[in-house]
Nucleic acid binder design. Structure first.
Lengths: 229, 229
DNA sequence: TGGTTATTTGGTCGCATGGCCAAGGACGTG
DNA sequence: CACGTCCTTGGCCATGCGACCAAATAACCA
């Protein structure tokens, strides 16, 4: 049986249902983040959501279903938040900066779903993984669009591999979740903007940069051939 | 009686012990990486190491002990590999590039211990975590030394927060482990060198860069104050 | 109000787990 | 050949798991 029938008319009780669902996902997110999916029991989730295990089972047939629902919500929230944040920004490079900041703010907020999506990937069984990978792929494609737009302004170096750039930026930003502490001295927005400046301008000083960059870059690439370290 | 059943290929008994330990850690690393610590059973580790569960228990009293040993080995191997690789490199900036490359090559190699150290952090109970954090802190301090050396050459932008730089670089590099595939079209060395060029020179083209960078950078930092989202 | 459906309760079930161990080799040494 | 040590064997056990459900209850409708 499913809750599809619930969508009657504008009834007040669905609020309670939504609330119970929300409580489950919030509790599960917190526990999954702290201990990982496999180390968390359904009894713990139920207790944290102030209900009995059977009640949880009524809404999610299995523990995997909870994880899948949580991850799907994470993709939705991330895309929604970033889309909303950049809606009023027109400059393509600035859109990347704002998007990065929004992504990190969500990751560092009390919403643990994005963290679980990023770091509990291995807990999904292959069948469910495929579905989630499609969802997650949408978010990555969305970001590729942002990067392409920024690159199309001509402000970027011409030889960039945008897929590699996305991996690079996602790595730097997502890794923040492993060391960020809310009581630290830097806000997520400050971290994101600092990282954006690193990304955009690099770490070396102007004077240390050769007038013509590309040859140096090409030399680095040549040195990276798999011949030998 | 069998006269020399064991006399296979000159493998004395003491070596066999080391071998068994090695087999356990290698099998455990592979399984922990694939499914995570909590989702892996000691029986699976034993089977993958071609021994019975009791034999594994003889060497490691508990599953946690296996994880701790694996992680300690990861720190040792990472520091050892990077130190060896940069031993003959004198230029401080180049030392960073080579170190980054070595770290990534280890992360993408068949040795799963570094991956487990980075991504199965939550599985440690608090007591063991403290010990490991000291070990891991040594590796981070070691990297801070590399970064400080590179920055001291004057080639770097003067206002850099080196701790943030380390987090930034570690994030980008470590995240590679989540998407790298050995049959991909890029080698770890190529990825590392490309990422180093991003780190050093940034993604924007020369002409897109203001002649005097710092004001722009300062403006970004000002915009990142927690006053407004 | 009474009938119907949505939700919660408080358990039970079969099972796999981590930890453990007594008995028995294998093996170099006396 | 007997000895003592190192290591493996194969299975045992209490625990706690995920999944499940029949019955009780709450919320809504006509």
């Amino acid at each position: 049986m499913a809750k599809d029938v619930v969508g009657r008319a504008g009834a007040p009780p669905p609020q309670a249902s939504e609330d119970a669902d929300e409580r489950i996902l919030k509790a599960a997110g917190k526990l999954f983040r702290e201990k990982g999916f496999a180390a968390t029991t359904v009894r713990e989730i139920a207790a944290a959501a102030s209900m009995l295990p059977g009640s949880l089972h009524y809404r999610y047939a299995s523990k995997d279903d909870v994880l899948i629902a949580l991850m799907k919500r994470a993709v939705l929230r991330a895309m929604g938040a970033v889309e909303l944040a950049i809606a009023t920004v027109t400059d393509p490079v600035e859109r990347v900066r704002v998007g990065l900041r929004t992504h990190l703010e969500l990751l560092c907020s009390g919403d643990d779903s994005l963290y679980v999506l990023l770091f509990d990937w291995r807990s999904l069984e292959p069948s469910a993984r495929a579905g989630l990978e499609r969802e997650r792929g949408r978010y990555e494609t969305f970001w590729d669009g942002l990067l392409l737009g920024a690159h199309a302004t001509g402000q970027g170096r011409p030889v960039l591999d945008l897929e590699l750039v996305r991996h690079f930026g996602f790595g730097a930003i997502n890794w923040v979740a492993t060391w960020y502490r809310p009581d630290g001295e830097r806000t997520p927005a400050q971290i994101a903007d600092t990282f954006f400046s690193y990304l955009a301008f690099g770490l070396l000083h102007e004077s240390a940069r050769p007038a013509d960059l590309d040859p140096h870059f090409a030399a680095l690439m040549a040195a990276a051939t798999p011949s030998r370290s």
